[in-house]
Write a protein that binds this DNA or RNA. Structure first.
Length: 434
DNA sequence: GCGATCAGCT
DNA sequence: CACAGCTGATCGC
């Protein structure tokens, strides 16, 4: 009676088509080289990078969805058993290389799944994505918007990546005698590194596997694996720590730069223009202070939470204002956050229900259970859509019979797992026919 | 011995 | 508090 039709960033059994928004591992959990549950649709760039992540994967399962045009294919309706046509368009999500949103249209209505995305109003790419989306939607309503709600709270404010990238370049320029390390992951932040390289006319060291990725992305000139060619190194995020920095400083003066949208990290030492040159340059006070140059009043954005470590608000997720602007543009009938985390999950309806076409009742923070009734009557479609979250119930049960350990400790750990499991959606189709 | 899951770390 | 991971331990097969 109830079976799955399509899944996005979810890899369990029971769907006829699987969609991957991008190659970060919290969206590929459950996907392995031996996976063979159906066709896997992704962007051209993701397909290009795919074999590096999943060597030996049966590439005949991989289907490229080029951005900005409609693709149609036939599936079997889980409810009626007859053929049904699914239309899908991929739109640049500008999160990491290859990342896309998926816009679906079919018997079930119209769905927009953003995956992780950054909706900067300032770039050419954003303008293009905006035009593509508007053109694709025409006058059709989006029934459900599945939204990257990572920073769906007004406290999350940060500048465009262009501004943040220049901040990083300025910090490096202000430390001409230092080695620099920048913490990055396996994919993402390439534009930041390219900006630094161009602004300072230097190459950037990366580890060998990362160089492979850069070459697949067509970035052939900027990066090197030879340490003697540059003082700027992009290193794996997990090897970037206070210990690492202290170790490096016993050999050579080195600062670390952490690009992140997260504003807190460790309690930062506040930096403002009044203390220009210090404490930003505190680590250098013995050998004389270094001037930071003119940061166009953006110096306050840079946090320094350790004598060797700077944190710069460079984010690949949308800030609150950008989320707001995106929802205002789409004006969905209903929406759901795709990111659920321990204490920070915010139902986007809480802040933006008023931007939905069918106005939503106010919701409480952190109260996911209220969703069940909430906006269901607002759906204009004949059939009701939902995100299956089967494993959640299991986890809840697990939590209850959990051992005697400290309540908060257990809770945090369980929610941590929960966050990871809840990424992605299995879009099921329930038959409500008489 | 292998994959899946979890704990701990950044 | 967590971005988006990685490593290592443990469990079931």
């Amino acid at each position: 009676m109830e079976r799955g039709l399509i899944s996005v960033d979810r890899w369990s059994d029971g769907s006829q088509a699987y969609f991957l928004t991008h190659l970060h591992s919290d969206h590929t959990r459950g996907l392995t080289s031996s996976w063979s549950k159906g066709p896997l649709f992704c962007s051209r760039i993701t397909a290009k990078l795919f074999p590096l992540r999943f060597p030996g994967f049966d590439l005949s399962l991989l289907r490229v969805i080029d951005v900005e045009s409609w693709h149609s294919f036939s599936l079997i309706s889980p409810s009626s058993g007859s053929n049904t046509v699914l239309h899908v368009m991929a739109i640049d999500a500008h999160h990491c290389p290859g990342s896309v949103m998926f816009l679906f249209r079919g018997d079930f209505g119209c769905l927009l799944y953003t995956g992780d995305f950054r909706w900067e109003g300032t770039s050419k790419r954003a303008e293009r994505a905006r035009a593509t989306l508007l053109n694709a939607l025409q006058d059709n309503a989006v029934d459900v918007l599945y939204l990257d709600n990572t920073y769906c709270n007004p406290s999350y404010e940060f500048p465009s990546r262009e501004v943040a990238a220049q901040l990083v370049a300025d910090i490096i320029a202000a430390h001409p005698e230092h080695d620099i390390i920048i913490g990055i992951h396996d994919l993402g932040k390439e534009e930041l590194l390219v900006h630094i390289a161009r602004a300072l006319n230097i190459k950037i060291w990366v580890w060998p596997e990362r160089l492979q990725t850069m070459h697949l992305l067509g970035l052939n000139d900027v990066f090197t694996t030879k340490t003697d060619l540059t003082r700027v190194r992009a290193v794996p995020r997990y090897s970037f720590s206070i210990n690492t920095l202290e170790g490096l400083n016993s050999i050579c003066p080195t600062i670390g730069i952490m690009p992140s949208g997260l504003p807190w990290t460790v309690k930062p030492i506040e930096c403002d223009d009044k203390h220009f040159g210090s404490p930003l340059t505190h680590q250098n006070s013995k050998s004389g202070e270094i001037q930071m140059g003119n940061l166009n009043g953006n110096l306050g954005l840079v946090k320094k939470f350790h004598k060797y470590i700077f944190s710069v608000p460079y984010s690949d997720h949308s800030c609150f204002a950008e989320i707001q602007s995106f929802i205002g543009l789409v004006q969905p009938n209903n929406m759901k956050g795709i990111v659920s985390s321990s204490s920070c999950y915010v139902d986007p309806i809480y802040y933006f229900g008023c931007l939905c076409k069918a106005s939503q009742p106010a919701k409480k923070l952190h109260c996911k259970h209220e969703n069940k009734k909430g906006g269901s009557q607002a759906l204009a479609v004949r059939r009701k859509l939902y995100i299956e979250s089967g494993k959640l119930t299991k986890l809840e049960t697990q939590r209850r019979k959990d051992r005697k350990a400290d309540y908060f400790g257990v809770r945090l750990k369980r929610f941590h797992s929960l966050r990871r499991i809840q990424r992605g959606a299995k879009i099921a189709d329930i038959d409500f026919s008489d």
